[in-house]
């Protein structure tokens, strides 16, 4: 019935709260794209809810004029799961960060994804703890010098996309905060996907980790470092679109020059609908500087949706057993009369 809805605009989704991120924080751009995308979905404003954990990104719900729940550190997917089970008509977005989702909240992220509950999870990855003022995070590269690692971190980072695919995610995508058209496109596709959508956004923390994603965001530089995924199209990148990715004889990806007798047909073609997650995982493992990093939708497949299955069980039980009858419940089992 979207034709009967008043036409909403980005303004309708702005709350009356002053936005308090640091000037030039990448979060502003993501907020702006979200406000642009939601009116296009044809869903009334009251049917949206934003749920978050703790961290800079998690202030997001306060800035959206929708229903919102600012939870506790790492638990947003669990809070959102309860909300979705109680109120399945809501479109629920989970806004989280690299520390919130992958460190303290790793367990909840993993289980939300493997259940395939209908949530849209957007992970703002800035490779740093910003709100607590600059400790390294589970996505910081090994050797990161931060307040808590003055001699460099000695643990290995997680790749959010690999984690999601490992959890059997049905929708996995990546975009960049300042790549606004691309980001809007990815968010739109995430919103339309039934089941858990997982979107990683490279987000610049210009105070504590400035330029961490310069290679993937700066015009004139990024073209050689990222590859935009399009279904049915070969993986071509480079300022002059003269480089591509193909699989070698061992099934491993390699970067090739298109001029050297290699044609587009020799390249890897993208298929986000592939049932098998191997291609998506292979893409997720392409990392700067050895490979161009994939942007766009790595995986987009259909699987049973948890909240729908839960509801279906309730419906089936009600059809089979009838509406619950308290008298019958109380009197179930052996009863006896005392005169």
């Amino acid at each position: 019935m979207s034709s009967l809805l008043p036409q909403l605009t980005a303004k309708d989704f702005a709350s009356d709260q002053e936005v308090r991120w640091c000037p030039r924080c990448g979060d502003y751009s993501i907020l702006a794209q979200m406000k642009k995308v939601l009116p296009e979905l044809g869903i009334p404003r009251e049917k949206f809810c934003f749920v978050s954990g703790i961290g800079c990104s998690s202030r997001f719900p306060y800035y959206m004029n929708t229903y919102g729940f600012h939870g506790i550190h790492g638990r947003a997917p669990a809070v959102a799961t309860g909300l979705k089970l109680a109120n399945p008509d809501m479109q629920v977005w989970v806004i989280t960060g690299d520390g919130d989702a992958l460190s303290i909240g790793g367990n909840h992220l993993m289980h939300a994804i493997r259940r395939n509950i209908d949530l849209n999870i957007v992970l703002f990855n800035n490779q740093i703890y910003g709100l607590t003022k600059g400790q390294y995070s589970p996505t910081s590269p090994r050797g990161s010098r931060t307040k808590s690692t003055p001699y460099g971190s000695v643990d290995n980072p997680l790749c959010p996309l690999s984690v999601a695919i490992g959890c059997e995610a049905t929708f996995v995508a990546r975009s960049v905060d300042v790549d606004i058209r691309h980001l809007a496109g990815v968010l739109t596709q995430a919103a339309h996907h039934k089941g858990t959508s997982f979107v990683e956004v490279y987000q610049d923390c210009n105070v504590f980790n400035s330029g961490a994603f310069r290679y993937a965001s700066k015009k004139g530089e990024k073209e050689d470092h990222v590859v935009y995924l399009e279904d049915g199209k070969p993986l071509i990148f480079g300022k002059n679109r003269d480089k591509g990715v193909r699989l070698n004889a061992y099934g491993r990806p390699e970067v090739v020059e298109l001029s050297s007798g290699i044609s587009e047909d020799d390249l890897l073609f993208h298929d986000s609908k592939a049932e098998d997650p191997s291609l998506a995982f292979l893409l997720a493992r392409m990392r700067y500087p050895d490979f161009p990093e994939p942007l766009g939708v790595l995986r987009n497949v259909e699987r049973p949706v948890y909240d729908e299955s839960v509801r279906q069980q309730v419906q089936e039980a009600t059809e089979r057993l009838g509406e619950g009858d308290l008298d019958a419940l109380f009197n179930s089992g052996d009863t006896w009369i005392v005169e």
Binding site: V79, G82, L83, N87
Partner: peptide, 20 residues
């Protein structure tokens, strides 16, 4: 809802309460 842990069970309870 059999949650992944006690924390999730409690958090989902808060979410369900918010959900009505």
């Amino acid at each position: 809802f059999q949650a992944e842990d006690e924390i999730a069970a409690m958090s989902a309870t808060v979410g369900a309460a918010f959900g009505g």
